[in-house]
């Protein structure tokens, strides 16, 4: 199942809609990294609301996506992690250190806006 990527202003929004296989996640990674450059996006939101499990592979892949996107000059926000999923992740010993997280898409967008403003202000100085 492929993850649809929506281009919205300067951002890319990837909404995961069902449980993903490892191959799907890798496909998402390739697509996002490519499109960030193609559309000169400032930020990426990955909405994982529909994910009922985040195991070590999924977490690692999301982390590499965020790092690659950073290398391409954009910010990543992961949003919509379910309470149960967060609980299982920390029990397993998984964190998303250094990666921004938000409650849902709305919060994710607000966070990206804030980050982008801060960055532009810093550059302008």
């Amino acid at each position: 199942m492929e993850v649809p990527i929506l281009k919205q202003g300067g951002y890319l929004i990837a909404t995961i809609q069902a449980a993903l296989s490892d191959a799907d996640l890798i496909k998402l990674q390739d697509a996002l990294v490519e499109q960030v450059g193609k559309y000169r996006s400032k930020g990426v939101i990955i909405d994982v609301t529909a994910l009922d499990v985040m195991d070590s592979f999924a977490t690692r892949t999301l982390r590499s996506i965020a790092h690659m996107i950073k290398l391409r000059g954009a910010e990543t926000v992961i949003c919509g992690i379910q309470p149960e999923v967060a609980f299982a992740m920390v029990q397993l010993g998984l964190t998303l250190e250094g990666i921004s997280t938000a409650l849902d898409l709305e919060e994710g967008l607000a966070l990206l806006n804030k980050r982008t403003r801060e960055r532009e202000a810093a550059r302008g100085r």
Binding site: C79, I81, P83, A86, M89, V90, T101, A102
Partner: peptide, 12 residues
């Protein structure tokens, strides 16, 4: 520590 980390995963 786990509680703090899990909360952060929800964006708090």
């Amino acid at each position: 520590v786990q509680t703090v980390e899990a909360s952060r995963l929800l964006g708090a």
